[in-house]
Simulated scan of single mutants.
Amino acid sequence: MTWRALKHFFGGAMGVFTTQTLLSSVGVSRNRATPGAIAINWILKDGAGRVGKMLFARQGKKFDYDLKQLRFAGDLLMELGAGVELATSAVPHLFLPLACAANVAKNVAAVTSTSTRTPIYKAYAKGENIGDVTAKGECVGNIADLLGTGLSILISKRNPSLLASFAFLSCGYVFSSYQEVKSVVLNTLNRARFTVAVESFIKTGQVPSLKEGNSKENIFSPPWLKHTPVVLGPTFGDAFQDPASFLATQTLFEKERYIVTYNPSKDKIYALLKDQAKSDDILKAAFHAHVLLYFVRLSNVNQSLRNRNKYGQSKLESPIPTNSDFVAHVAESCKIVSSSYGVFKSKAAEQGWIMSDSLLNPGRARLCELKEQ
């Protein structure tokens, strides 16, 4: 809440400069336009922002998957919108398109902030007091916003440099936002925190505590960037580069409701889900995928070291595993998962983690078995 209050303080201060700039650009201070034209421009600006807010709100379900990443991305978007608003002072004749774009960005950021706020407050609640926690949290934010607004009004009377003021307030806002997000401790396992927990378990045999797991979560990983090495619930065509690789691994997963494979051409691990897969099967598939990823990376590192010892510094690239190597890795991972998945679940529960497949955001594709008539 301290970082949240500081963020609202910088946000309130920034609001004075952006509002002042917008009013100047639209023609209020210099009487460049008639009151009717000014009103129409202002209404169009706000209307564009509301349309953008409604369209973006359709992505609401994704706010639960990557709460911290989206919240921080929303605050970055808020500062981008503020920067565009300040830019209207340099080109006042482009007020309407710039102001519309800025308002869309800020409204999208507002939706992100509002949608991710309740889960954060829920983490503070110790019982059925989420309403009380929310009320007090919003009070803190409003007080800080008013203090920032008041101080900024006093400073603006001295006509400070607009660029310097924006740079200082923007840095303070972004830094406070990052610290706010990093300090929140959630007990649910989304993809980022699940990755931290599984990797720690593989390397040390222990599941990190709630505080440690949250502190290691990567905030600079926007969910819309498809660069993750593990894909959960992909299509068949994405997972297998040829039928032979499917046939080689299918028999290893006859008793499971999922199939885990590695596609060397894309350098990714794919966990395909069968149509009868349940919640625990999805969690197990994700766990298995990270185990296989560990084996593949370890094999690549070892092979690179062997190449370096044999050929010198010119052969450091990781080779693409052969089909036999790949099948061996999958078979080895199956043995590890069968004996360690239950241990991982129990240790995660001991640390207070809540295991749920819903936050892992698995894809919709499912494997269906064809039965002979």
Score class of each variant (00 low, 15 high):
N41C: 12
S29R: 09
A48M: 11
E85L: 13
A82R: 05
G36K: 00
G36N: 06
D66C: 04
L86N: 02
V51H: 05
A48R: 07
K62P: 00
Q59A: 14
R30S: 13
R50H: 12
I38C: 01
D66W: 00
K61Q: 09
F56M: 05
V51Y: 09
W42T: 14
G52A: 05
A57T: 15
L55F: 07
L67G: 00
L70K: 15
R50Y: 14
L86A: 08
G52C: 07
D64V: 04
Q59I: 05
D66M: 03
A33M: 12
M54P: 00
R71W: 07
R30I: 13
K68W: 01
I38A: 01
S29G: 06
M78K: 00
G36M: 10
G36C: 02
M54N: 09
L76E: 03
W42G: 02
K62M: 04
K45D: 02
A33S: 09
G36D: 06
G83R: 13
R50A: 11
T34S: 15
E79I: 13
L80V: 15
F56C: 03
M54G: 07
K62W: 06
R32L: 15
G60C: 08
D64C: 02
G83T: 13
L76Q: 06
G47W: 05
D64L: 13
V84D: 05
A33Y: 09
L80I: 15
F56Q: 01
D75F: 10
G60Q: 11
F63H: 04
K61C: 01
Q59H: 13
E85V: 04
L55C: 12
L76Y: 07
T34Y: 05
K61T: 11
G52I: 07
F63W: 04
G81F: 02
G81T: 05
T34C: 03
T88H: 08
M54I: 15
K45W: 03
E79C: 14
T34A: 11
L67F: 00
L44P: 02
G36S: 04
R32P: 01
V84P: 00
L76V: 07
D75Q: 12
K68R: 14
L44G: 05
A73R: 00
L67A: 03
G36H: 04
A39H: 09
V84F: 06
L67E: 07
W42H: 03
E85M: 15
I43F: 12
F56K: 01
G74T: 02
L70D: 01
A33T: 02
G52P: 11
K62T: 08
M78L: 10
A82H: 04
G74V: 02
M54E: 02
G52V: 09
W42R: 03
T34R: 10
Q59D: 06
G52K: 06
G49Q: 06
G49S: 08
N31C: 11
A73Q: 06
R50D: 12
Q69M: 06
L77Y: 03
G74K: 03
F72K: 02
V51M: 13
T88Q: 08
T34M: 09
S29W: 10
Q69S: 12
A73L: 11
G49L: 05
E85N: 13
L80R: 02
D66E: 12
L55T: 09
D64M: 08
N41H: 13
V51W: 10
K53R: 15
R71Q: 11
D75R: 08
N41F: 15
Q69K: 07
A57G: 12
A37F: 07
D46V: 13
G52H: 09
L55P: 04
R58Q: 13
